[in-house]
Design a protein around this nucleic acid. Structure first.
Length: 470
DNA sequence: ATGTCC
């Protein structure tokens, strides 16, 4: 093939974006008989003075993509941000507040809130909650669409965590997959029969990889762990007596499927919804357009896929333990829902790193690998848009953690906490997270604690090579 | 978060 690649175009000064795709498509369809060098020379000329090519029969589309958007096409932000409630403001970095302020100046924004674990992300901060009218913002859902917490409680004496920790480690090794590893023979799941895999072209192209990644956990802050739950609330929804239970807790999302869906529709949104520079990642899709409806379907599929992965993870653990769980709690914390506002109007509530906490709704808020997590019951606080934090929140960046922490220091910390960790890196060490108890303190109005989970045997993505048995 | 780039 003579066609220049995206890399070639970047080398001659093209910026990442839709112009590259248009340029390659044009070269393929209209200039394929020229040498690659000749094609690149044409593309360089258009890049140098796109205005000269606006009337060109072949190159007009490329010229248009290269010119800055006309001023009148840019949707102005409101002069002042709409008001919103911040929980635990003292512990939230300025970058996250700035991003939330920008989000509250979008013309489609109706209401918002910032959770006490908030930190800077792409577009909406992580820990940001945003209600909009008839619009969905892919980057206010997040890249890992449908990222989930899931917990199973067992009628197994929690002493097993000390007495048979080697067996439990073996169970984690054999029944979970991290990083690029997947199961050699993925278990079938009804999710793969969903019509969206046939009807939405982008989703169709992701089906094979989605199948291969079923039941896997990925990387970053994702984990599967065993620990002990102390159930405090005698009126708990599980109908269980208070006391201690062996528990399995997992945190992971929609893997490559959701990431690719997020990337695809963010790009679409940014092309059709031009916003000032500081708000460009908050581009939305109108839910009354074909693209908006398609994203909604794809997002829901990714959410259900993430959930399916958790079901397989917990299913494998249950089989290995030889027991069925007494109770299961599960919630998304990167997602958008259609909900009603106080006046009864439908609004789109985006929670990007925030736990749904409507009245009586159960959820899980993890701490870190060596600090408690909580089974919580939402209080339905309107000012938080029925939301709570999705964890403790970082106090140290991944980069800083790798630069300042040492392996012996982290190992000692874990040893003193009585936690065994398979995999992971310094960037997920307990000290990179805020004090979860303080975070819970900041959201007393949002959730009540039903139970406390103490992690004991943790598996995360890491460099270490362990033997996995398929 | 992500076969971590179009």
């Amino acid at each position: 093939m003579n066609t220049p690649t995206g890399k070639d175009l970047l080398e001659i000064g093209y910026k990442p974006g839709k112009a590259i795709g248009i340029a390659i498509a044009l070269m393929e369809s209209n200039y394929a008989d020229l040498l690659k060098e000749e094609q690149l020379a044409i593309l360089a000329q258009v890049l140098a003075s796109p205005a000269d090519y606006l009337e060109d029969a072949q190159l007009a589309a490329l010229a248009e993509a290269l010119l800055p958007p006309k001023q009148e096409e840019i949707i102005p932000l409101l002069d002042e941000a709409r008001g919103y409630t911040i929980y635990g403001a003292a512990g939230i970095e300025a970058g996250a507040l700035n991003q939330m302020n920008t989000a509250m100046r979008l013309p489609v924004s109706l209401a918002g809130a910032l959770m006490p674990d908030a930190h800077q992300g792409y577009g909406l901060p992580i820990g940001g909650v945003l209600a909009t009218k008839d619009a969905v913002i892919p980057y206010a859902v997040g890249v890992d669409i449908g990222c989930c917490m899931s917990m199973s409680l067992y009628a197994i004496d929690s002493a097993i965590l000390n007495k048979q920790s080697e067996q439990l480690k073996r169970i984690l090794l054999d029944n979970t997959r991290f990083g690029t590893a997947t199961f050699k023979k993925p278990k079938d799941h009804a999710i793969m029969e969903r019509p969206e895999f046939a009807t939405i072209p982008i989703v169709k192209s992701l089906k094979d990889r989605a199948y291969s990644q079923l039941g896997s956990s990925g990387g970053g802050n994702h984990f599967v762990e065993f620990g002990v739950v102390e159930l405090h609330d005698k009126d708990n929804e599980f109908g269980l007596p208070t006391g201690q239970y062996l528990a399995a807790l997992s945190h992971s999302g929609s893997r490559g499927l959701g990431a690719s869906i997020a990337g695809h529709y963010t790009k679409l949104a940014m092309e059709s919804c031009r916003l000032p520079q500081e708000a460009r990642h908050l581009a939305w899709l109108d839910l009354n357009t074909a693209e908006g409806q398609e994203y909604w379907l794809a997002m829901n599929l990714a959410g259900d896929y993430a959930s399916a992965c958790h079901h397989q993870i917990h299913g494998r653990l249950a089989t290995a333990l030889g027991e069925q769980p007494l109770a299961v709690v599960e919630n998304h914390h990167n997602f958008a829902w259609k909900e009603k506002d106080a006046a009864g109007n439908e609004v789109i509530v985006h929670r990007k790193g925030a736990t749904p906490a409507g009245q009586g709704v159960l959820g899980i808020i993890p701490g870190s690998m060596a600090t408690p997590g909580f089974i919580v019951r939402g209080k339905g606080e309107a000012n938080s848009l029925n939301s709570a934090s999705h964890g403790a929140g970082r106090v140290m960046s991944r980069t800083k953690a790798k630069q300042t922490l040492t392996l012996p220091q982290v190992q000692l910390y874990l040893q003193e906490a009585g936690v065994e960790v398979i995999g992971s890196g310094l960037d997920e060490a307990p000290m990179v997270y805020k004090d979860i108890r303080q975070v819970m303190q900041s959201q007393q109005d949002l959730v009540e604690v039903v139970g406390t989970f103490t992690p004991k045997i943790v598996r995360m993505c890491g460099d270490e090579k362990y033997m996995e048995k398929d």
